[in-house]
Design a protein around this nucleic acid. Structure first.
Length: 572
RNA sequence: GGCGAGGUAGCUCAGUUGGUUAGAGCACACGACUCAUAAUCGUGGGGUCGAGAGUUCAAGUCUCUCUCUCGCCA
């Protein structure tokens, strides 16, 4: 039994994520977690909401709520939707937790001790009425170059000239509109990634089995232009983790918080601590997942994320870990995904284009989405969601191939025999061939799952479903029953057992349908079918089963047309 | 403009280190079957692998140029 730590990139707090976000991290991570649990491994699957930073403050202000309250509410909303998609997190935490406060401050302290933090004095625009500094895009004014009236602090959108906020003529705050501004000096902390560059490169070079997408992005940041740059890890904001050196005051940094990208990945660790707290377990329970000196030496750590997150996970976060000088677990395998496009364009959160997680669940159960998204996961390149493709894939794969198989077997048995596993007859050559092929197919399927080849795994699973139909078609129990009912009974006995095995194999992709299949077979034995022959006799003769309702209904042309129109425009 | 990723059957995509007649699913055509959600199974048609040039005994697979798409950055 292996010990497997899995983290999904943590979704930002300000709103509900779309299907592209889901398929890029949480969903494949869940697939991998479910599979490994099914194989009997010890799994810790962690996700959380990423709650700090200006966008959260602004969203809260827009909603007319204190930011802490807003985040708490949105966390609950996201947690509920995650449950709806059957995302099987061991814990869904919050980056604003006290655990993360302490751990983030701890890491900053260790980095300072190691001489990897430098303090930088900067000039920024301060809004007296807003009571805050105004980072680049929160200040606008007239461009000194072209006279454009809405130039941003960092750049003029009209003439593209790069600006310093202090260059703007008649600047004003984009938050309040106030012109009561002044230049103030402010101090910030920088993580000296440059001095960790060689260490990071050596570490990345040691990862020979990582996807090209992952390593090429990391290499680009290491080598592009002037190479890896030091990174500011503090901000002049109210909402966030107060800057401290461990549990000590950091002189000159009072009132400042850590930058969201510094504390967010640390939440992976903190979230595991939150899990232990929620379970009433001591610190050792989470430390054995993260501290190689406290039992995590045999843990294999997998991260899942969209490609936009790769630089932070290959460079910034490892810099934090390595720089601390403490024996924290580094990622062993980083699985990254490209983007999912929506009907010829991009999903857009701001424009409400595409399908969002809550909307998806409101029109169809999660299994439909899980199956389509995973079987079309953007692994090697960006991929495309269209309603036509969604409709035909789901109808064919789920309703026709799998759902109908369950239906035809159970209904035939009840009609010709009874609602009990038939007892007569022996397995013959056809059954032996099926079992042999199934064994090979399951091996291929497992190999894909272990190497996280999501699309290939889904294709293998589908092929496994198909051989059930092939077998039935060739064996033709509906014909055999007329002349040799005992032989037909053996065929159906095998087929009923096949349904139970399919439930086990399919559960990582479509957990609800799998549960329905298992329940219909009157079993709760989810043991992975390592021994296929034995698994095909698991349901004993005379064992009672039920005919389940159709596992999957078909999506009609009318529905497809309706949804296509509904989700093309603006989210209301 | 710079960088990155791509352009393979009508559609969505596979194609290891260059090596026999380029694959899958869907769609389409025909056939079989009739237990089942008008489901299933079988057979078949269909591609000058974006364009051009080069390296090689041999290129979808390597090199160069061009072109188109998408994303990121400035």
């Amino acid at each position: 039994m292996a010990r497997i730590l899995i983290t999904s990139a943590i979704p930002y707090i300000n709103g509900i994520k779309h299907l592209g976000n889901l398929v890029g991290s949480q969903l494949p991570a869940d697939l991998f977690a479910r599979y490994n649990r099914a194989r009997g491994h010890e799994v810790m699957f962690i996700c959380a909401t990423d709650e700090h930073g200006t966008p959260a403050e602004l969203a809260a202000a827009k909603a007319g709520k204190p930011v802490a309250e807003y985040c708490a509410e949105m966390h609950d909303v996201q947690a509920e939707i995650a449950r709806g998609f059957r995302l099987s997190f061991d814990h869904f935490g919050r980056s604003s937790s006290q655990r993360n406060h302490h751990l983030t401050q701890h890491f900053a302290g260790k980095l300072a001790e190691a001489g990897l933090i430098r303090e930088v004095e900067e000039s920024q625009i301060y809004s007296i009425d807003d009571g805050r500094f105004l980072p680049d895009r929160y200040i606008e004014g007239t461009c000194p170059n072209c006279g454009y009236g809405s130039a941003r602090g960092d750049q003029c959108d009209n003439c593209t000239k790069q600006l310093d906020p202090t260059d703007l003529i008649n600047p004003h705050s984009t938050i309040s509109g106030s012109t009561n501004l002044e230049v103030r000096s402010t101090k910030h902390l920088y993580l000296m990634q440059r001095s960790l560059r060689d260490k990071l490169e050596a570490w990345i070079d040691s990862k020979k089995d990582w996807p090209i997408l992952t390593t090429s992005i990391a290499k680009k940041w290491l080598n592009d232009g002037d190479g890896l740059q030091d990174r500011g890890i503090t901000r002049d904001l109210h909402w966030g983790i107060p800057v401290k050196k461990g549990d000590q005051i950091w002189p000159g940094m009072e009132g400042k918080v850590f930058y969201v990208w510094f504390d967010a990945p640390i939440e992976y660790i903190a979230c595991t601590a939150e899990w232990a707290d929620a379970q009433g377990l001591p610190d050792a329970a989470w430390q054995r997942w993260w501290r190689t000196d406290m039992g995590a030496a045999d843990v294999t750590y997998y991260q899942f994320m969209g490609k936009d997150n790769v630089p932070f996970h290959t460079l910034s976060f490892p810099a934090t870990i390595l720089g601390s000088g403490e024996p924290w677990k580094l990622v062993d395998y980083l699985k990254s995904f490209n983007y999912l496009n929506y009907d010829g364009g991009q999903f857009s959160t701001s424009r409400g284009r595409g399908v969002f997680m809550d909307q998806a669940l409101s029109i169809l159960p999660s299994d439909y989405w899980r199956w389509w998204l995973l079987s079309h996961a953007p692994e090697s390149a960006d991929s495309e969601f269209t309603w036509e493709n969604f409709q035909v894939s789901v109808n064919k794969d789920l309703a026709d191939v799998l759902g109908n198989l369950v239906s035809r077997v159970t209904k035939f048995c009840v009609a010709k025999f009874s609602a009990h596993v038939p007892s007569a007859g022996e397995f013959g050559e056809q059954e032996a061939r099926l079992i042999e092929e199934l064994g090979q197919r399951i091996k291929d399927y497992s190999a894909c799952m272990e190497s996280m080849e999501v699309r290939k795994a889904s294709a293998e699973l589908r092929a496994i479903w198909v051989i059930g139909n092939e077998y039935l078609q060739a064996a033709a129990p509906w014909t055999v029953v007329k002349t040799d009912p005992e032989r037909a009974q053996a065929m159906i006995r095998l087929s009923l057992n096949l349904i139970r095995v399919y439930a086990i194999l399919s559960a990582p992709f479509i957990p609800d349908a799998a549960a329905a299949m298992m329940a219909a077979m009157g079993s709760d034995d989810w043991t992975w079918p390592d021994d296929i022959a034995a698994a095909m006799s698991k349901l004993p003769a005379g064992h009672a089963f039920t005919v389940p309702d159709n596992l999957f209904r078909k999506i009609t042309d009318e529905e497809r047309a309706d949804w296509q129109q509904r989700f093309a425009g603006i989210r209301t």
